[in-house]
């Protein structure tokens, strides 16, 4: 039996191996993704993002547990929960220390929860290049929901907005004033805002700043969107407020279905995925069609100021990609 078939049959060893193949971009991984793709599209993908140390892993730990209980009650659904946790790779050595499992002690013995740590491997948007593909594999294996924890994100690591159906943005008390809250970027992508460590001081002012940010949204765009991100308080280490977050996720899921926004988001995601693949493949083929040394010659010319980078690029593009 090949890996894809074994994954469909429920083998967790095959699932783990396939995730490695997919992460490494091997031919076997690509072939299996093609086979599995028809079985994807069922899982609800939940993104969890926020600054380093706000408690993303602790929240995922609690959410995975609670979702497992919740979906066990809704019998018609699978109650297996997938977790993808991304941590940064070193830009110098390519190595990584993946520490998200430390906070996931409560769920790491549960065979119904599959946790996979991923290193970002040079990607800068808060995810790894293979995260979308890994989510498809878990989806095809019947995991639902799938929780995706991003790299500790600053202000512009917003790739998760394109991948996930529901994005939870985590803040902790005492992180910046109200101007931070109206800057563009990470807060904009939130479907649910969670203030974690709500037992610490400063929680009121953080909530006020976030509420003020939401109030500034123009009435017209609010009416057209129909979803106002709720602001919830949690203490992830004790589990306080977690049930409310899960309920908010289910509400958002229902809203996406009812409003047709789920389809819209799927299209958006598939568009960006298709575009990326096309440009990757074009570049790959074009590189293969380059005569030896042409690229280096162009580089020399730019360096000696014989031509501009744009001129050199146009010249190199004269070599058209070979057909497959």
């Amino acid at each position: 039996m090949d890996l894809a078939a074994e994954v469909r049959a429920g083998s967790r060893l095959a699932l783990a191996r396939l995730l490695t193949e997919v992460e490494n971009g091997t031919e076997q991984g690509k072939a299996a993704l093609d086979t599995l793709f028809p079985y994807t599209g069922h899982a609800h993908l939940i993104g969890i993002t926020g600054s380093p140390g706000t408690g993303k892993s602790s929240l995922v730990n609690q959410l995975a547990r609670t979702f497992r209980k919740f979906s066990a009650a809704r019998v018609e659904e699978s109650n297996r929960v997938g977790v993808l946790a991304i941590d940064p790779s070193s830009p110098f050595t390519g190595g990584a220390l993946l520490g998200d499992r430390i906070r996931m002690r409560d769920i790491s013995g549960d065979p119904g929860i599959f946790i996979r740590s991923m290193a970002s491997r040079g990607a800068l948007g808060g995810l790894a290049h293979a995260t979308a593909a890994a989510a498809q594999v878990l989806d095809a294996a019947g995991y639902n929901p799938i929780l995706i924890e991003t790299v500790g994100a600053g202000q512009s690591e917003v790739d998760i907005a394109r991948l996930a159906h529901t994005v939870i943005v985590l803040q902790s008390p005492g992180s910046g004033d109200d101007i931070q809250a109206i800057k563009a970027g990470i807060l904009e992508i939130a479907d649910i805002l969670v203030i974690n460590k709500a037992d610490q001081t400063g929680v009121e002012s953080t909530e006020m700043a976030l509420r003020a940010m939401l109030d500034l949204v123009s009435p017209s765009s609010r009416e057209s969107s129909g979803w106002i991100p709720p602001i919830l308080r949690t203490v992830a280490t004790t589990g306080e407020g977690i049930q409310e977050v899960c309920e908010a996720v289910y509400r958002h899921q229902a809203y996406l279905q009812a409003s047709g926004e789920r389809k819209q988001r799927d299209y958006l995601r598939l568009t960006s995925e298709l575009n990326c693949l096309i440009s990757d493949l074009l570049v790959q083929k074009w590189r293969a069609s380059l005569p030896d040394g042409a690229y280096h010659q162009a580089l020399e010319k730019i360096h000696s100021r014989e031509c501009s980078p744009l001129q050199a690029a146009l010249e190199l593009l004269q070599f058209s990609p070979k057909k497959v």
Binding site: G95, L97, L98, G99, S108, G109
Partner: peptide, 22 residues
Amino acid sequence: RDAGMEVIYTGLRQTPEMIAEA
């Protein structure tokens, strides 16, 4: 990590079952 490997650090007080599962 510095040698370029991906190290998954699971932390303290793990049971054999948790380690095998990881």
